Amino acid sequence: MRFASVAAAVLVWHLLSANDVTFWLRFNRLPGPVEVFEAFRTQLATPRYYQDVTQSLVRILSGFALASVLGIGLGVVLARSHWASDVLKPLLEIARPIPAIALVPVAILLFPTNEQGIVFITATAAFFPILVSTRHAVRALPTVWEDALLTMGASRLRVMRSVVLPGIVPGVFGGLSVGMGVAWICVISAEMISGDFGLGYRTWQAYTIVDYPNVLVGMLSIGAIGWLTSGCVELVGRRLTGWLSSEQRSAS
């Protein structure tokens, strides 16, 4: 069924573009799947395509790793410490509504290279979904779990290791999945603005020279690789939460 849905979408796209349908949307100007496939086959024969894919993946994974460490760590601290929440939460809440892509001028001023600035923007984009989901996951833990260990004489460190960290895994991976998707949106936008390599830069370059088949090649490549990376995050999450029932896993 999944393959059939994709095949049906490609068939509709082919019929609309091949027949130059112009009802509201102008499919007569959109390259068809055959043109895009030929452009994609040409791209696969060039080393530049693989360089762009590798560059975008390095930026995504670097930024996502930074966001994961900082987001999970700060999320736990903010949920467990009233003092840290009072000091840091106002600053974070002011920064959270600012779109990460709006930080491009700041990144250009702060960082000596475009590469560091793009990783910064990517990390910032993924950081807040991970932070918020982690904070909510810690606060949602049943207090009876912690109270039971404290009653038996467990230390705060033991509570953190045996109750808090295992208990927040489902909620954390929900934030990680969202963070990965947002990170892809922002890394592509940053590459279009200030990148030298990467799928976003190459897609924008194709647009500037009116090479529309390669614009769609870039878009479809971004979608496919983004889906694979998000799928990897969800797969790891399912492996680490095998103790949950299927209903609990879908709810988290």
Rank of each mutant, 00 (worst) to 15 (best):
I72P: 04
R239D: 04
F37T: 12
R26S: 13
S189N: 08
A224R: 10
V163Y: 01
L244H: 13
W204H: 09
A107Q: 03
I209P: 08
V215T: 03
S177I: 02
F37K: 02
T134Q: 00
A9K: 05
A123Q: 03
N19I: 01
T241V: 08
V119F: 02
F173I: 00
G174T: 10
E93T: 13
Y207E: 14
R239Y: 11
R239C: 08
M180I: 05
R80G: 03
G73R: 02
V144P: 07
V10Y: 01
R249F: 12
R161P: 09
F3L: 15
H136R: 07
L109C: 12
Y49W: 15
V138H: 05
G195H: 06
S177P: 08
L244A: 11
R135H: 14
T134M: 08
Y201K: 04
A148V: 14
T241P: 00
V159S: 09
V172E: 00
R2A: 09
L157K: 11
S230M: 14
S68C: 11
V138C: 13
P99E: 02
R59Y: 05
I193Y: 08
W204Y: 14
A18P: 06
A39W: 02
W243S: 07
R48I: 06
I225A: 10
A84T: 04
T151A: 15
Y201F: 13
I101M: 12
R2S: 13
T46M: 12
Q205K: 15
V119A: 07
A95H: 01
D211T: 01
L235D: 08
E191G: 03
I188G: 02
V21P: 00
R239N: 11
S62E: 05
L149R: 01
F127V: 01
I101Q: 04
S85F: 10
L109S: 15
Y50P: 04
P31W: 08
L228S: 02
Q51T: 14
Y207H: 07
E234M: 14
A65C: 08
N114Q: 12
S230A: 15
R59E: 07
T113Y: 02
T134S: 01
R239Q: 10
G75P: 03
A183E: 02
L150T: 13
A8Q: 05
V76K: 09
N19K: 10
G63T: 04
R80F: 00
Y50M: 02
L15E: 09
G153F: 11
G179R: 07
W243V: 01
P166C: 03
L74A: 03
L165I: 12
L150R: 13
V182D: 05
L157Y: 13
A45I: 03
L244Y: 03
